[in-house]
Simulated scan of single mutants.
Amino acid sequence: MTDRNGLDFPIIETDRLILKEIKVEDAMSIFSIFSNEEIMKYYGQFPMNSLGEAENLIEIFNDNFRSGRGIRWSIFLREENRQIGTCGYHNWNKRHSRAEIGYELSIDAWGKGYIKEALKVIINYGYEFMNLNRIEAVVYPENEASIKCLMNLGFKQEGLLEEYAFFREVYQNLIMFSLLKNNIK
């Protein structure tokens, strides 16, 4: 896939992971992740009910790339060639050189350091290729694993955003984290 600036979708590899474009063929994997209540309780939406919803989400991710509003990678385990989640940027504000990072993993991949490994490389990508100065993350206060991961990567907690978002029919408190380019670990 090529974005509006003529750039091909970047593939990023780590020791254990391959981050690549999310394709319609990944819809079943996306659906299995996004239909799980345990995963979605911190995502800000209700679990998916149909494969069509997964296909629509893939199109949203891809449209964000084509239009220059963000980028979302599919996370594959290198040895198994199996998708275990997604990660990337949304709410990309080019004028202010900032974007929000987001991610999720299938439950069987939790606690193995995969998200930290993926985020390290996309953080570098954001600073090097997207010209970001600030990377933001908003996290539910109850999402202890995500908070720990972000802090281990050098993100700073900026504060509680009271009733910041209307997710799942309720106003939700979220914690704002940021990582500035000159504060990279």
Rank of each mutant, 00 (worst) to 15 (best):
M1P: 13
R4T: 00
N5R: 13
G6E: 07
G6K: 03
G6L: 05
D8N: 14
D8E: 15
F9S: 02
F9I: 00
P10F: 01
T14C: 04
R16F: 02
R16T: 06
R16H: 09
I18D: 04
I18K: 12
E21I: 06
E21D: 10
E21T: 01
K23N: 11
K23R: 14
K23F: 05
K23A: 11
E25I: 06
E25L: 10
E25M: 07
D26A: 08
A27R: 08
A27T: 03
M28T: 10
S32C: 11
S32H: 14
S32P: 01
N36T: 09
N36C: 14
N36P: 01
E38G: 01
M40Q: 08
G44D: 06
G44F: 06
Q45S: 15
Q45Y: 13
F46Q: 09
F46Y: 14
L51D: 02
L51G: 09
E53S: 09
E53C: 06
E55L: 15
E55I: 06
N56V: 05
L57M: 14
L57Y: 07
E59M: 12
E59D: 14
F61V: 06
F61H: 10
F61R: 05
D63L: 14
N64Q: 13
F65E: 01
F65A: 01
F65N: 02
S67K: 15
S67F: 12
I71Q: 04
W73P: 02
S74E: 07
S74N: 06
S74R: 09
F76D: 07
L77E: 12
E79W: 05
N81G: 04
R82Y: 06
I84A: 10
G85Q: 08
T86M: 14
T86G: 13
T86C: 13
C87L: 02
C87N: 05
G88F: 07
H96Y: 11
H96I: 03
S97E: 10
S97N: 13
A99F: 03
I101P: 02
I101K: 02
Y103C: 12
Y103L: 07
L105Y: 05
L105W: 02
S106P: 04
D108R: 04
A109R: 02
A109K: 03
W110T: 00
G111L: 01
Y114S: 05
K116P: 02
L119M: 08
V121H: 15
G126T: 00
E128D: 13
F129I: 00
F129K: 13
N131Y: 08
N131W: 01
L132E: 03
L132I: 01
L132G: 04
N133W: 08
N133Q: 11
I135G: 07
V138F: 14
V138W: 11
V139S: 07
V139T: 06
Y140P: 00
Y140C: 08
Y140N: 13
P141R: 02
E142Y: 00
N143G: 05
I147M: 12
L150F: 01
L150N: 01
M151F: 01
M151N: 04
M151G: 02
M151H: 04
M151V: 11
K156H: 12
Q157G: 10
E158T: 04
L160Q: 04
L160R: 08
L161S: 06
L161P: 00
E163T: 05
Y164F: 12
A165C: 11
F167Y: 13
E169V: 06
Y171L: 14
Q172D: 07
Q172F: 05
Q172E: 12
L174E: 04
I175T: 08
I175S: 07
S178T: 10
N182G: 06
K185Y: 13
